[in-house]
Design a protein around this nucleic acid. Sequence first.
DNA 1: GGAACCAACTGCCTTAAATA
DNA 2: TATTTAAGGCAGTTGGTTCC
Length: 309
Amino acid sequence: MSARRPYRSDASDARWALIEPVFAAWRASRTGPGTAARVHDLREIVNAILYVNRTGIPWEYLPHDFPPHKTVYDYYAKWEADGTTQQVHDLLRDKTRRAHGRRAEPTAAVIDAQSVKTSANVAEISEGIDAGKKIKGRKRHLITDTLGLVLAVVITAANVQDTTGGKLLLNDVAANHPSVSKVWADGGYQNSIFNHGALLGIDLEVVQRPRAKGLEPLPKRWVIERTFGWLMQHRRLARDYEALPQRSRAMIHWAMANEMSRELTGDPGLFPAALRKPPGPGTRQPSSISRADTVLSSSGATSGMTRSV
DNA sequence: GGAACCAACTGCCTTAAATA
DNA sequence: TATTTAAGGCAGTTGGTTCC
């Protein structure tokens, strides 16, 4: 650990110990003849990425006691491109599942999408307008396990239909999580995705809204709405500032890795005490999903968070 | 209303230093 | 000498703001 005063976003010793082997292996794979000595500790690079991810600051505004923002961004891009970020995320997801008495590989999942506004620096070719929400930006297509942990992410322009993004997600899940045979979705998905799922051996089921009046989480699907809530608590994800969609995806992986590592080490984070417990009165939840943005069983619910239903 | 300017992010290029 | 890392500079893009 560095001599600087710690930030709230820093990885504790216990959290760093969880992911350090991945970075040690990454470093080992790049040492050899002609390798120059590294100046910066990789843990400090990780801490800087977590700081940006959690606080939402521009790279250029990174505090001076971190490595230079150019260098941090260089690692951020490098780790995204070579799959290191995903490797860290997947490792922590497996550990979190096991810690909750699950097998590493899930058998059921939940699918949904969320539209977010983009920043000025995002090229028009990678953004669009969500016709339903009248939002110019990007859409995050997510598929999670039944704990709300992310299995796959696809980033598209906001004008891409949920069904189109959903098919890409199913392809990803079929390739990387072949044990998944059941996926719950909302009524917004078109028939073609159900046929696509059937071809991949995945049974898609629409979760019906209960008849009860008032605010009530939808069965099965509240877990993915809670995941969107966790993501929105990371300020870098409250709006999409990344020029490249794959960098946007990496930010989601870092946000989830941050929370999962906290969960595994008992460091207070956004995860509720009981991951499987649906949100209800008295349940501590991120503000972003405790408002009317939550999936509602009542009709006519609006969404300031522009969740896509 | 339109031009000029500014802010933010990222990619690309370059240079210097370190190492086997 | 070749390779890798660190880091600086600059250009491109987009949206916002200011000024005329």
